[in-house]
């Protein structure tokens, strides 16, 4: 196997612009910020939802409700990957009925994570609507799931990896395509 090739897709500024646009689209989708709940998927989805929340506060003066989901327990592939020992926090507002939930994640790929997230949210309550916002849509769906809001579409091949790096977790902001790395 040849050494993987790493190419930059988005830099910090481009990520900032994408999030800015996503924030506006989220408000439009939710018909305002009143019923909006941003739910990030552990772990970088949580950070992205957090940033979008900051943007909304700054530009709309609105404090939107936040949540976090760890979908580990809802995965359908425990046998293949083995347990992920450290299960992140799952935290949702007490009352979900009538809310508009926007799930925030870094990369949309097969759709299985979102399927698990939908199952999990359903166990917590019955929101009026659930939307999906992702920073990167790399294609390659295995389930009929599409995002409502996309920061950037990246045509990636099955063997490629898309890394979203965030300053809070990784020390810098970047989106990189790693070509030819084993999936």
């Amino acid at each position: 196997m040849s050494a993987p090739v790493r190419t930059s897709l988005l830099d910090a500024q481009a990520i900032g612009r994408a999030l800015h646009r996503m924030a506006l689209e989220i408000v439009a989708l939710a018909g305002g910020t009143e019923r909006l709940v941003l739910v990030g998927i552990q772990r970088r989805g949580v950070e992205l939802a957090e940033r979008i929340g900051v943007l909304l506060r700054r530009e709309h003066g609105a404090d939107v409700q936040h949540g976090a989901l760890d979908i580990t327990l809802y995965r359908d592939d425990l046998n293949e990957i083995g347990p992920r020992p450290v299960i992140g926090e799952t935290r949702l507002p007490h009352e979900l009925d009538g809310k508009v939930i926007v799930i925030v994640d870094d990369v949309l790929f097969t759709g299985r994570t979102i399927r698990a997230a939908l199952d999990q949210i359903a166990d917590f309550g019955r929101p009026a609507r659930i939307g999906l916002a992702v920073l990167i849509d790399r294609g390659g769906r295995e389930l009929p799931i599409q995002a409502d809001i996309v920061g950037e579409r990246v045509p990636a091949r099955p063997g490629d990896r898309v890394d979203v790096l965030l300053a809070e977790v990784d020390g810098r902001d970047a989106v990189e395509l790693v070509r030819g790395s084993a999936a």
């Binding site: 327990l73 299960i87 999990q120 917590f124």
Partner: peptide, 23 residues
């Protein structure tokens, strides 16, 4: 590892639907 893994499971038992599809 076991004790740390037990932490999120405490929360599952506090949910209205106390069930996850893991197994």
């Amino acid at each position: 590892l076991i004790l740390d893994t037990a932490e999120p499971f405490k929360e599952v038992s506090e949910r209205a639907i106390k069930k996850v599809p893991t197994l």
